[in-house]
């Protein structure tokens, strides 16, 4: 990417600063290591309640991060991420409940890797929904895109809510947590700390992957669609294809968040497909800072902390102060909590 010779220092200072900013700074990686280390140690020092809390932040953070690919990098506000999340959740549930028992894969591997089967099923379910949504919604722009994603997620909600025989309807599905397995090597039951580390590993890997994607030529095209769509098209990029891939990528990682939620909480309920989850995802992303990938995780942490604090003061009406703070942030701090560090985070 950086094969272009840096322009003369005096004439083009702006470009020059970009050229030197290509490589991530040492401070960034130092911060990254500190945060990941803190999150890894967290379950050892925190009481069980807060331990679960941190794990949940990571899961919701991954969901918000996936939404950021669309909202922050491509400039398409999705109000339908609950569909991907929910299908990931139900896909994993289906695999854990009805996957063929020992004997089918046992003959091949010696064990039944239920954990990986659940992940695969969740991702496939989310990907199928993403193909469907991407095919229709990417033809639309701006508000129309937002409304059509919202409508798609409601369609999936209605299907899951009313198809009681398979999905359990309003009651949802409960299942057992699969053990952590590496086929042929080991199989151990998840401890409380274990599930946290597993989630942390998946989320950090996803973050690094998504970060790489946003910095790749593909990610640059997405950002150029955000900045100026007609111009991107005029240069010769097939904008629709890029949008379809962006929606699918985003949907896939949202589905992964759903799978993690299934593994942690051992149940699936239609509430997680309801549009409220999509709304919260957008809140996480906007509050934390669009277009930063880390911001949405911070946004999720901020939102869940506010929820925790306010629900002790206002009980179930905590959304009144949260809604107020969100509205004020949209008006006065539209770039979000980490928006000020956007350039540094994207190096």
């Amino acid at each position: 990417m950086s094969t272009v010779a840096p322009p003369p220092m005096t004439s083009m200072r702006a470009l020059d600063s970009r050229a030197t900013a290509e490589r991530p700074s040492r401070a960034y990686w130092a911060g990254f290591v500190v945060v990941v280390a803190a999150l890894a140690v967290a379950p050892l020092v925190l009481p069980p309640f807060w331990q679960r809390f941190v794990t949940e932040i990571l899961i919701w953070g991954l969901l918000a991060m996936s939404a950021d690919i669309l909202i922050g990098y491509t400039g398409m506000v999705s109000f339908g991420h609950s569909a991907f999340f929910g299908l990931g959740l139900y896909g994993a549930a289906a695999a854990l409940l009805w996957a063929p028992g020992p004997g089918w894969l046992a003959s091949v591997w010696g064990v039944t890797p239920k954990l990986w089967a659940a992940m695969a099923a969740g991702l496939v379910a989310a990907a199928l929904v993403a193909v469907f949504v991407a095919f229709f919604s990417t033809r639309l722009r701006d508000i129309y895109f937002a409304i059509s994603t919202l409508v798609f997620s409601q369609i999936f909600y209605v299907i899951i809510f009313t198809w009681t025989d398979v999905t359990g309807g309003e009651n949802g599905l409960t299942f057992r947590q699969p053990p952590f397995e590496i086929p042929g090597l080991l199989a151990v039951r998840f401890s409380g700390d274990g599930i946290h580390w597993f989630v942390l590993a998946v989320v950090v890997t996803s973050y690094l992957l998504l970060r790489r994607v946003t910095q790749s030529p593909f990610g640059m095209v997405l950002q150029s669609i955000r900045e100026n769509e007609p111009r991107t098209r005029a240069i010769g990029y097939h904008v629709e294809r890029y949008k379809i891939v962006a929606v699918m990528l985003s949907g896939l990682f949202a589905g992964l968040a759903g799978v993690l939620y299934a593994l942690q909480n051992k149940f699936a309920a239609p509430d997680f497909v309801l549009f409220l989850i999509s709304g919260e995802t957008v809140i996480f992303t906007v509050m934390g800072g669009m277009g930063t990938l880390v911001g949405p995780v911070a946004g999720a942490a901020f939102f869940l902390l506010m929820k925790e604090v306010f629900s002790r003061i206002f009980y179930e009406y905590y959304l009144i102060p949260v809604g107020l703070i969100f509205t004020l942030m949209v008006i006065f701090v539209p770039q979000g909590l980490l928006g000020f560090a956007r350039r540094a985070l994207n190096r």
Binding site: F79, V286, L319, L324, F326
Partner: peptide, 25 residues
């Protein structure tokens, strides 16, 4: 919000919707 991206109005009114709904509850 006048003059900003119409999408920010979705976000702001979504916040208002949360407030009104829970106020009613």
């Amino acid at each position: 919000l006048i003059g900003r991206d119409p999408l920010t109005t979705i976000l702001a009114t979504f916040g208002i919707s949360l407030i009104l709904q829970n106020y009613a509850l």
